[in-house]
């Protein structure tokens, strides 16, 4: 029953905003939970509370067996945290950063140095080890930041949006690094705005919005609710939206919905074959289209399917899901 992370009824309010509104989390030991949601959904707040950076207004939690409120110092000994904004010192070298963190975990001088060297090697940063971090690329910084989080080999790891802002290559690299980590039995709670990232890395996904859980399940379960691939049609005239929606509805496994003005989207299976059939039907109905695409579901689609509205403050859509 007791997992590596157990949180019950976490609440955090700022003056008018309720950042967390009674969130429960259960992460069994050695598994990966992704907290999926748009900006402002409360993901960072949840991680900050579990990493002892913030005090919840209500609720309780244990992390790696230590009670969050009663013994935060004990929690800090058992966790690693890597934030959304790479929290490494840009004037120090990669080695100096990791060495410092090791010392602050009280590994001892020799052990901290050895550990820093080993991690730099493992994260493919040895060549840059003695260069100030400000000369690093975004992906290198993220890897160093992640290395900093695992200096003390903590049983529980929190990663807050580990790939936000990385280019697709940096993202893929980061995924590889994270997978290798998890393979060693670390329990991981990660936050992300990307359904694909949650799909790639997590055993279990909690979708949150406005500080509340709105869905919970494996990637497959969520996809079953959202549909696998989606077809998206943008029509040129507002009058064509409804006819296009009706056509999509015929071919869709789920329901076609109006995503934005003049854009209709629906889950579809059958890949390019089904895609061609839809195109033919659109042609037959003489609907003028501006754009038609087939793509994998994004956070927006999850939100559409689960709540009927788009993820509210999402600035970034999934960048690498286009297949049109």
């Amino acid at each position: 029953m007791s997992g590596a992370v157990e949180a019950t009824g976490l609440v955090k309010r700022y003056k008018e905003v309720t950042a967390l509104d009674g969130l429960d989390l259960h992460v069994p030991e050695g598994t990966v939970l992704a907290l999926l949601g748009p900006n402002g959904a409360g993901k960072t707040t949840a991680v900050s509370i579990l990493a002892t950076l913030l005090q919840p207004d209500a609720g309780s939690a244990t992390v790696a067996g230590a009670d969050l409120l009663a013994s935060p110092a004990e929690v800090r000994r058992r966790i690693g945290l890597s934030g959304q904004f790479a929290a490494v010192d840009e004037h120090l070298t990669g080695f100096e950063n990791l060495d410092m963190i090791g010392r602050l975990y009280h590994l001892g001088r020799a052990a901290a140095r050895a550990r820093a060297r080993a991690l730099l090697e493992r994260f493919n940063l040895t060549a840059a080890a003695d260069r100030p971090v400000k000369t690093y690329s975004g992906g290198m910084r993220r890897r160093l930041d992640l290395a900093g989080a695992i200096v003390a080999e903590p049983p529980v790891l929190f990663l807050d949006e580990p790939t936000t802002g990385l280019d697709p290559r940096g993202r893929t690299e980061m995924w590889g690094v994270i997978r290798a980590l998890v393979g060693r039995g670390t329990t991981l709670l990660l936050t992300t705005q990307y359904l694909e990232e949650a799909d790639q890395l997590a055993d279990d996904i909690v979708v949150i919005d406005h500080g509340r859980e709105i869905a919970h399940g494996t990637a497959d379960e969520l996809k079953a609710r959202v549909g696998g691939e989606r077809i998206e049609i943008t029509v040129t005239s507002p009058d064509a939206v409804e006819p296009a929606r009706l056509i999509l509805d015929r071919f869709s496994d789920g329901r076609a919905q109006v995503a934005r003005s003049r854009t209709v989207t629906a889950p579809i299976s059958g890949g390019p074959g089904a895609f061609r059939e839809v195109l033919a039907a659109i042609e037959e109905a003489a609907i003028a289209v501006y754009d038609v695409g087939l793509r994998r579901p994004t956070l927006d689609d999850v939100f559409l399917a689960l709540t009927g509205h788009a993820a509210q403050p999402s600035e970034e859509a999934e960048p690498n899901g286009e297949a049109s």
Binding site: T52, L53, F85, L104, H106, G148
Partner: peptide, 17 residues
């Protein structure tokens, strides 16, 4: 501003250090 304070605060180090 740089976020390194959050890292320090999540480490098991002395709170005054």
């Amino acid at each position: 501003q740089k976020g390194i304070m959050s890292r320090f605060r999540a480490l098991p180090m002395s709170r005054a250090a």
